[in-house]
Write a protein that binds this DNA or RNA. Structure first.
Lengths: 121, 121
DNA sequence: TTCACTGCAAAACGTTTGCAAACAG
DNA sequence: CTGTTTGCAAACGTTTTGCAGTGAA
């Protein structure tokens, strides 16, 4: 556990949404100006494989990362692009029932306007 | 509708699984050796935007494309990497019930061994 | 003291773009 | 004929890699 890894994990933990490697790099530079992009990626990959953080790919852009490691689902606002976590605990069992097979895991992104953007409409 | 677009759509229609742009390019070259990668991408993007085909991003590799345009879900075999379509018609309503909001659309990839790989285990 | 990790630069990868020539409608 | 699409090459954004030097344990 290096200072760099601690910093990156801290940034992710304090964010209420998923961040791109670029955003993490920018925030990390504020506190540690010498940090390199490669280090950010090294750590994101290491922590993702260790199950400490979670990586997700969304259409048309860079991968995003969050500190939440337990299985969870995602809400993506197509208006502002914000990606937030949500827990649908019953869903896995529901899916297994529907496909008649064990589900190892699943990735779900629900496209729906976030409350702020819905209000503006 | 150019010959190139026809060819690419034909390749996708005849496949029982999702293909990467690279695979499509390779198959297209067999029938039309002068075709360019850019043309493959141009057409995939055009048809995706027109709703004729469907693009999906999976962790750790290139985007994949299929000829199926109606909303559907995905089964990904973590053993052999095969990506197939499945229809879970009741799921959208179920999700709306759970998040208490209208769902514009959603992307779902279920990780589960395909029948062939399951048998080998 | 050791070995994993850093920072840097360069490469790799998938995808997009600019442009002149070719083609479909 | 006109506008769209092609093929090519070069650029792009994101991610990974090789490597010498650094720092954590």
């Amino acid at each position: 556990m290096t200072r760099q890894r601690e910093l990156i994990l801290g940034i992710l933990s304090q964010s209420d949404r998923h961040l791109t490697a670029d955003e993490i790099f920018f925030l990390a530079k504020l506190k540690m100006p010498t940090i390199a992009m490669a280090t950010v990626y090294n750590n994101l990959n290491a922590m993702n494989e260790a199950g400490v953080i979670h990586r997700i790919r969304v259409d048309g852009g860079a991968d995003r990362f969050s500190a939440v490691s337990e299985p969870h689902d995602h809400l993506l606002c197509d208006e502002c692009g914000k990606l937030t976590d949500i827990r649908l605990p019953k869903l896995k069992v529901e899916l297994e029932k529907q496909i008649h097979s064990p589900v190892d895991s699943y990735d779900l992104v629900i496209h729906t306007l976030c409350p702020a953007c819905r209000r503006k409409k």
